[in-house]
Design a protein around this nucleic acid. Sequence first.
DNA 1: CGACAATGAATGAACATTCATTCATGAAGC
DNA 2: GCTTCATGAATGAATGTTCATTCATTGTCG
Lengths: 218, 218
Amino acid sequence: MKRPLPALSSRKAADARPPVADKRDAIMRAATQVFAQRGFFNAQVADIARAAGVAAGTVYLYFRSKDDLLVSLFERTMKDAIAEGRAALAGATDPRERLSRIARLHLERLGRDRDLAVVFQVELRQSTKFMERFSSSYLREYLGLIREAVEAGQAEGLFRRDVSATAASKILFGALDEMATNWMLSRRRYPLENDADTVIDLFLHGVGDRTRPVGGVA
Amino acid sequence: MKRPLPALSSRKAADARPPVADKRDAIMRAATQVFAQRGFFNAQVADIARAAGVAAGTVYLYFRSKDDLLVSLFERTMKDAIAEGRAALAGATDPRERLSRIARLHLERLGRDRDLAVVFQVELRQSTKFMERFSSSYLREYLGLIREAVEAGQAEGLFRRDVSATAASKILFGALDEMATNWMLSRRRYPLENDADTVIDLFLHGVGDRTRPVGGVA
DNA sequence: CGACAATGAATGAACATTCATTCATGAAGC
DNA sequence: GCTTCATGAATGAATGTTCATTCATTGTCG
């Protein structure tokens, strides 16, 4: 009854068979494209298979189900993004610089691949089922990355301590997320990563005119 | 061949029948609930009908299709929200106060009805089809409301002029949106509207410590 | 030869939508 | 006041389609 999982068939070197990673990858790429184009629920597995140049049944040799395909897409991308993020952060000690790098990386990655952006900004938010699952795993980790930078800034006295670091990180994430969504929906093709500076600038300094006395709203 | 539309059968006064608005409303309420619970694509029209206490076919006397039901939900809510927003803004001249009211109203409305929040934060983002449609209509108008307040602030010299009002309004909206999404996904039931002050505070002043010299990041 | 990846036609379940029929209401006629 | 009729809202079983998924078969290595 076991469905054959893609085995590590070639025990030799990395050239004997490109089968596993190769085909799996092709299917994921195709899925990104098709999901972006038609939407997850309207996308047919057969479409994805065709786009990947394989038969419908083949998809099921590499993925348990259509759902699994979407989840795998998300997990792989998030894993990459977090790794890349941590790497980029290694070289920066100033919390402001750290936030700036996160923001730039975030928008660069999505701005590089519009299909991926569509999947992330739209298709992944299909249902609370997915949302809950995602937000409690990698997304949580990603938000944590931001929060740590904010906390570091507070500890160093660079950032205000009278705002919750958690709230601040949500706000920054929300701002980036909205920039990405806008870009993805817009017909214009401007360089998304440029928004990173604007977001960070506003996040650090606010819109309030600094040349004037600080006025509260409430 | 014409399907009977709910007619204004009683020509007399406003008490003769509660039928039309009543049932339509019940279906919309039920739809909000069922969409929130199961997600748009997994929700069956029959479920909605049952929840509304009508037969499946009846739904089609009031709505063209399942899609139409979701669209109607969105339009009614947005119409309400924008009207309420404009009303609240009438009494405030200070742009900071205007933004504050928008933020509070935004979060209050969603925080009042979790099912509605789920539909707005998740289900409406089903597909680019919906997204494009929404973002180009009411959402655009809503963003415009925010942008106008920002522009007014800039004109009055209260806000910095070196940031695009459009970018700033996206950022504010994104921050509010993320607060709402977090609240909706969280198991804890805290008063969402309290986040409005935090968001506005940060939007106006940023996280940067004001007691220190202004340091640029780049 | 095996062994196993790949195929794609066949299966069957799920569901939006339709529409022939029922029923409650109120008007008209007696 | 009572009966009959017309109207159209409401019903819900039946329809037809649309796929995700399976699996018997085929092709290809070593």
